[in-house]
Design a protein around this nucleic acid. Structure first.
Lengths: 115, 115
DNA sequence: CAGTAGCGCAACCTTTGGTTGCGTGAATGA
DNA sequence: TCATTCACGCAACCAAAGGTTGCGCTACTG
């Protein structure tokens, strides 16, 4: 059983800078490469590249407005990504709990042997 | 408000190969660089590097046994990482409850699809 | 003791996140 | 109208990370 996750989507959300960008876009209700770079420790060009990545996986959506290019979060897509994050967490959680139960059962059997 | 996450731990779990390695280690109850590489599309050396990363952030624990080096998952640490994964989702959820509702709806629809 | 299995080290390649530098087109103000 | 300025795209370049091959060492095994 694999985790069945879209690795492109995951790795898009996996980058710390891109997470902060999504954060900012959500907080401000959108923004441009320039406005984002002002609130981040990286250059506008770096931000632009990240926006390209986010755009390609459909997490953001761009609308040219005069000489600006305004980006907004596609909330449905982000919701899908968040859902997949939780799904991975749930998978490991389930497996950890299963292992724990097995360990406890073995422990009980050992104690039964001794008596 | 940042996501307040340990980026080292996140990026350790963020790599697809390392996620599959953790998966395999949990499934088999431990393993070596060689046994893992047999079940993965990468070489033993690549696996060894990843094990180094996982070891450095404390997600796995190694015990030399003869000419082997057996690795096992530190379940407590992994549980912490999983909790942080959920925390990221929770942060975004808290800011936009709308997104959370959409995510849950998608989740329900997926489950409905499976039945 | 000869052979093999598991591993570590080192050199190298490619991708990716990041930078600087430069050119271009859309607002803006005299 | 025209010079300026602001937002952007493109290109070259750099460093870190994931991945590979090649080599040598050491601990088991026949």
């Amino acid at each position: 059983m694999s985790t069945t996750i879209d690795d492109d989507l995951w790795s898009a959300v996996g980058d710390p800078t891109r997470r902060r960008m999504l954060d900012l876009l959500l907080a401000d209700g959108g923004g441009t490469a320039t406005t984002l770079s002002e609130q981040l420790p990286v250059t506008r060009q770096a931000v632009a590249k990240h926006l390209g990545v986010l755009d390609r996986v459909g997490l953001v959506h761009v609308t040219p407005a005069g000489r600006e290019r305004r980006y907004e979060v596609d909330e449905t897509q982000l919701a899908r990504a968040v859902a997949q994050l939780s799904a991975v967490g749930a998978t490991w959680d389930a497996r950890l709990q299963r292992i724990k139960r097995i360990a406890e059962r073995i422990q009980r059997e050992k104690e039964a042997d001794r008596s």
